[in-house]
Design a protein around this nucleic acid. Sequence first.
DNA 1: TTGAAAGCGGTACCAT
DNA 2: ATGGTACCGCTTTCAA
Lengths: 335, 335
Amino acid sequence: MSGIKDVAREAGVSIATVSRALRGLPRVSDETRERVLAAAARMEYVASPHAASLKSGQTRTVGVVVPNVTRWFFGSVIHGAEELLRQEGYDVLLYDITGDPEARHRLFSTHLLSKRVDAVMVLAVRPTPEEVASLVRVGSPTVVVGGYVPEWPSVRIDDVLASRTAVRHLIELGHERIAHIGGTPDPEHAGLQLPTPHDRLEGYRQTMAEAGLAIEPGWEAYGDFTARGGLTACQQLLDAPTRPTAIFAASDEMAIGAVHALRKAGLRVPEDISVVGIDDHELSEFFDLTTVAQPAHDLGHRGARILLDALAGHTPTGLVLPTRLVARGSSAGAP
Amino acid sequence: MSGIKDVAREAGVSIATVSRALRGLPRVSDETRERVLAAAARMEYVASPHAASLKSGQTRTVGVVVPNVTRWFFGSVIHGAEELLRQEGYDVLLYDITGDPEARHRLFSTHLLSKRVDAVMVLAVRPTPEEVASLVRVGSPTVVVGGYVPEWPSVRIDDVLASRTAVRHLIELGHERIAHIGGTPDPEHAGLQLPTPHDRLEGYRQTMAEAGLAIEPGWEAYGDFTARGGLTACQQLLDAPTRPTAIFAASDEMAIGAVHALRKAGLRVPEDISVVGIDDHELSEFFDLTTVAQPAHDLGHRGARILLDALAGHTPTGLVLPTRLVARGSSAGAP
DNA sequence: TTGAAAGCGGTACCAT
DNA sequence: ATGGTACCGCTTTCAA
């Protein structure tokens, strides 16, 4: 594999000139530039990113920290971010730290991350204050997508509002007994996660209260944002003293699990029980699931944009993207 | 951020000793090593991966080339691979080259990839012979997951067999009019993709022929491996002169789209038409979809293992993982 | 406009 | 067991 020296020799110039010519810097005569470009092309020369990074201090790489690429929302965000980043010449380093707090800590607290990337995108992972401080100190631009961490700009939806939209939809359909499947138990005190589950629960409670509707015992269950969790949670809900006529799940995957649990219990959706989720997962349409859509792909794209701008010296500002109700067949009037 | 020199000064040794001590190399006294370790920890020192790469020629990074992280199968494979790679101290560079042949070409043909990573995992992307040659020439260990490229070891399932399992299941249920939704049209001549769609089509045709069953005109449609594509394809299938009593889709996502199309057309699944897919997508269970399961996560894990072994000097060998029929509610006896 | 040379921060060889 | 030092392949002054 040829290096810059080979190109220099081939083009009959110094390596400094090759470097300038190849990067499109000024102070290179057109004729020289052309000769260098030709030589580089002929030799299939590509500059070593490591050598360049070492000297310039830039890695042209951004790190994406995510709890689980398998989940639709995260995959979509990454996809949206990757697209723009690659287009701008940045590589994406993927850090999937599924449920391993130690791995998370190693990542955030050591300077590993900062030595390898120019900027960081954090998805649904909540670093401890010390970890945040460590990253902030290093100065790498960081953006949070789909959540909120005070020290960093974030691209997200209004989770409380999304919940309100979902619950209000059910109320407008005439439901009064509405239960909730949240993401995590006790979201108020969970230190290592973003406010998302808490906000969605909050939106549910607020809307119920404002409508003068009571939340009966056993109407709040938790599904860990997975379909299987949603299924289990839904089964618990059915055991509540008062059976709800509608279920609002904090994610589509949990909603899908809930629908399945209902069918297995011999209940019809939406005739007996309505179900609404949040996300508009790509398969939700095929499930005929009513949901509050959030623009996952776009969240990733905007997050990447913010990082790119920050890298260009701009001061980054957060962003709240709109959601919208997508009424489908899983919700109908109260029985 | 402190460098190796700072640590050396702090520990009162030379940088060479620091390097050795930190990497656990021999010829460092226990006492010295301890002092160096302590100093490094105190200063939160982390070696610059770029500097190390520059000298050692190793990047401790593997590149994963994938057409679309959003798709369940790819996400799962990446997840499986990432887990093992990170554990072994490798970073994962993600190249999502969704439907951009030019991006693919740039990636494979320039030495960009080879200068940035020690090894490459390719998912469902088929490089041209020249692109393959380029990577082979550079000598980076490469593995193909979920497909097959002659020059490289691959980790995959037996796609023909998976199809046969699905179709035989339908035949055993008494179906004789079985249609197929394939991944891509004209899979025999598509140069830039893996044999997967072709093999699955082949398995369908073989099994039908062996059972003495005819494939009527209009019984082969294509859904691009997406739910929406499956929906459209299924609608075409319903327009065939002879209506099938069962549909075998080459992926669960297409099968899910097909089920939705059937329901929209007023048909019941499985009473009127049975549907079977391939994958065992994480949501298939909640769809009550019969399918032939493939171990996506494990495919990724094994692929990573092969890469790691190759990096350690072993000669890599491909691997074919087993699939199994998961009979659920979307398939039943012929009406 | 071009070239020479000093690093960037480590690794690895050769002395000691 | 330790230290000195020549690189790795580029970028970036500084001179010419």
